[in-house]
Simulated scan of single mutants.
Amino acid sequence: MTGTESAASLLRRLRREQGRSLRTAAADIGIAPSQLSRLERGERGLAVEISERLATYYGVPSEVISLSRGELPEDIVRILQDNPELISRIREEFRDASRSAL
């Protein structure tokens, strides 16, 4: 997953990488194919319950899907709130890592 991959494109990519049809995946997850199609096109919001089912189905941590929606896990938010100095440390560390990757 790239840092800019949306939840919609992530879901579509995971399904396709696993060789699953839209109908099969939707049936296995317990939603209508039209609902999964709208999720994969970004036309429908992703409820927490569905997000968790999708993560389990595709075998990825639920945080992967949450992050693709721009959401941080609550425990990480609390850690950063309690230790705001970590924000600048993280930025500095990964700024250096992204420069060396170029």
Rank of each mutant, 00 (worst) to 15 (best):
G30T: 05
E40D: 10
R15H: 04
A47N: 11
L11Y: 01
R78A: 13
A55W: 05
A47S: 12
T4N: 07
I29C: 03
S9T: 11
S21Q: 08
L86I: 01
A27I: 11
M1E: 07
P73C: 00
T56M: 02
G45A: 12
G30R: 05
E63T: 15
R53Q: 06
L14K: 02
S9F: 10
A97C: 07
E74N: 10
L72H: 13
E71M: 03
R15P: 07
R53C: 14
E43V: 00
L86E: 05
R53F: 09
Y58V: 00
T24S: 15
L72C: 00
G70Q: 04
R16W: 02
I90K: 01
I79P: 00
L22I: 03
G19W: 06
I65A: 01
E93R: 09
L80S: 06
M1P: 04
T24H: 11
A27S: 13
E74T: 02
E74I: 04
E92D: 15
E17W: 03
D96C: 11
L80H: 02
P73D: 12
M1N: 05
P84E: 03
Q18L: 05
R16S: 11
P61M: 09
A32M: 03
A47M: 11
E43N: 15
G59S: 09
A55H: 04
D28N: 13
P61C: 10
R20P: 04
Y57L: 04
D75A: 12
I31C: 06
E71K: 14
E5W: 04
I31E: 08
S62G: 09
P61F: 06
E40S: 00
S9L: 03
G70M: 06
P33A: 10
R78E: 15
P33F: 10
E71A: 06
A25G: 01
D82R: 11
R91M: 03
R91T: 10
V77E: 13
L10H: 03
V77L: 12
Q35E: 12
V48T: 14
T2R: 12
S88E: 14
A55G: 04
R69C: 12
G45W: 06
I76Y: 15
E71H: 09
D96F: 06
N83Q: 09
R23A: 15
P33L: 09
E52T: 03
I50G: 07
L11S: 01
E52M: 12
V48N: 08
S21I: 02
G30H: 01
L54H: 08
L39G: 00
A27K: 14
F94C: 02
R13S: 00
R23G: 03
Y58G: 00
D75M: 04
E5K: 02
P84Q: 00
L10G: 01
Q35F: 08
L86C: 01
S66H: 13
R89W: 05
R20T: 15
L54F: 01
R13N: 06
R91S: 08
A32T: 13
Y58S: 00
R13T: 05
S34Y: 01
F94V: 07
I50C: 07
L54Y: 10
G30I: 06
A47T: 10
A101C: 02
R99V: 14
A7N: 02
P84M: 06
S51R: 14
S6F: 07
S6W: 05
S98R: 07
E52G: 06
A97P: 04
L36Y: 02
L14N: 05
S51I: 10
A47Q: 14
N83D: 10
S21Y: 01
E93I: 09
I90T: 13
